[in-house]
Amino acid sequence: MTEEQERVQPSGVWATAVGVAKVRARESERADALFRDPLAQAFATAGGRGPSSSPPPDDEADRRRRAGLALSIVIRTKFLDDLLRQATASGVRQVVLLGAGMDSRAFRMDWPEGTRLFEVDTAEPLDFKASVLRRERAVARCERITVAVDLREDWPSALAEAGHDPTEPTVWIAEGLLIYLPEDAVELLLARIGAQSAAGSRMGLTLGSRGVIERFGVDAAPGSAVSMWVSEMPDDPVSWLAGHGWEAGSHTLRECAAAYGRPMTSPPQRAEGPGGLISALRP
């Protein structure tokens, strides 16, 4: 471990981003990868989740849970990649990643000229990320702007100070974020997003399916990502988002996995509907 890694070690909710990077690194090695993330392994290794790290306990139930969570990360990544491409094809040139973590879309995707991508997260993960990007000599493919602010604070003001223009359409991404926020915080986040969204804005969300905390969180190890889940989606996410001024579509992981050629082999669970992958438009 390098001196720089010893100074900055992931902790708390943002540390889950390192685990997500590990999943994306493994997907990138597949011949039939749904996406390729050339920075994912560097993030995982810097966060202590590299190839030489100790494997998790070989418990069958735990293995199934981890495999299911890994597949969900792969599918949601592909889903949101496609949503971003559709948004920029429609003319949107502002992208905001809320709780950006180790997201490398600014570096791995092709962006139209004039695209500005804002990564919003707290200073600690952004600093950790910056150290890895420097070592990798990574070059963004769009104008990338980091905004160090806690989403529990006045992040819209910080975003505006960084150059975001609420009079122009924006595509918002909240990936693997809302399940860590209590219901009142989720409602506030959606209200703030709506206040900064011009007509033609898009939004991509991942939501915790009904019953997912019961299925995966009951035996979760203290401090693990699953142990920090606190919220699930409403019974009718489309109507919920309509109340916030969005025209939304809801998709299940199983539906998208099948469409992407990665059908889920586990039997359907009652808690899988409605869908936890959301695409939305601001009319």
Rank of each mutant, 00 (worst) to 15 (best):
residue 1 M to L: 05
residue 1 M to C: 10
residue 2 T to A: 08
residue 6 E to H: 15
residue 10 P to C: 08
residue 12 G to E: 03
residue 13 V to Q: 04
residue 15 A to P: 14
residue 17 A to K: 12
residue 19 G to W: 04
residue 19 G to P: 09
residue 27 E to R: 11
residue 27 E to M: 09
residue 29 E to M: 14
residue 29 E to G: 13
residue 30 R to I: 13
residue 32 D to W: 13
residue 32 D to G: 15
residue 32 D to E: 15
residue 35 F to Q: 10
residue 35 F to V: 01
residue 37 D to S: 09
residue 41 Q to P: 00
residue 47 G to E: 01
residue 53 S to N: 00
residue 59 D to G: 01
residue 62 D to N: 08
residue 65 R to M: 08
residue 69 L to Q: 10
residue 72 S to D: 15
residue 72 S to P: 12
residue 73 I to K: 12
residue 78 K to H: 15
residue 81 D to P: 03
residue 81 D to E: 14
residue 84 L to T: 02
residue 85 R to S: 06
residue 87 A to S: 15
residue 88 T to K: 00
residue 90 S to T: 06
residue 96 V to L: 14
residue 98 L to P: 09
residue 103 D to K: 10
residue 106 A to I: 04
residue 110 D to F: 01
residue 110 D to Y: 01
residue 116 R to I: 04
residue 124 E to C: 13
residue 125 P to A: 01
residue 131 S to Y: 02
residue 133 L to R: 10
residue 134 R to D: 05
residue 136 E to T: 09
residue 142 C to K: 11
residue 142 C to G: 13
residue 145 I to M: 12
residue 145 I to C: 01
residue 147 V to Q: 08
residue 148 A to I: 02
residue 150 D to S: 05
residue 152 R to T: 14
residue 153 E to G: 01
residue 160 A to W: 14
residue 161 E to H: 04
residue 163 G to K: 11
residue 165 D to F: 00
residue 166 P to N: 02
residue 170 T to V: 07
residue 178 L to V: 03
residue 180 Y to Q: 02
residue 181 L to W: 02
residue 182 P to E: 05
residue 182 P to S: 03
residue 183 E to M: 08
residue 183 E to H: 07
residue 186 V to I: 13
residue 187 E to T: 11
residue 187 E to R: 14
residue 190 L to E: 08
residue 190 L to V: 13
residue 191 A to L: 15
residue 192 R to E: 12
residue 192 R to S: 02
residue 193 I to S: 08
residue 194 G to R: 15
residue 197 S to V: 06
residue 199 A to Y: 09
residue 200 G to T: 13
residue 206 T to A: 15
residue 206 T to Q: 15
residue 207 L to S: 05
residue 208 G to H: 11
residue 216 F to G: 09
residue 216 F to D: 11
residue 218 V to P: 00
residue 218 V to H: 09
residue 221 A to E: 08
residue 223 G to H: 01
residue 226 V to I: 08
residue 227 S to L: 05
residue 227 S to N: 03
residue 231 S to T: 04
residue 231 S to P: 06
residue 232 E to G: 12
residue 234 P to F: 06
residue 236 D to C: 11
residue 236 D to K: 03
residue 240 W to K: 00
residue 240 W to M: 09
residue 241 L to S: 07
residue 243 G to Q: 04
residue 247 E to Q: 15
residue 248 A to H: 04
residue 251 H to T: 10
residue 252 T to V: 06
residue 252 T to N: 06
residue 257 A to S: 12
residue 257 A to N: 00
residue 258 A to H: 10
residue 260 Y to A: 12
residue 263 P to V: 09
residue 263 P to T: 04
residue 264 M to H: 12
residue 271 A to P: 01
residue 275 G to M: 07
residue 276 G to R: 04
residue 277 L to W: 05
residue 278 I to R: 07
residue 278 I to W: 02
residue 283 P to S: 14
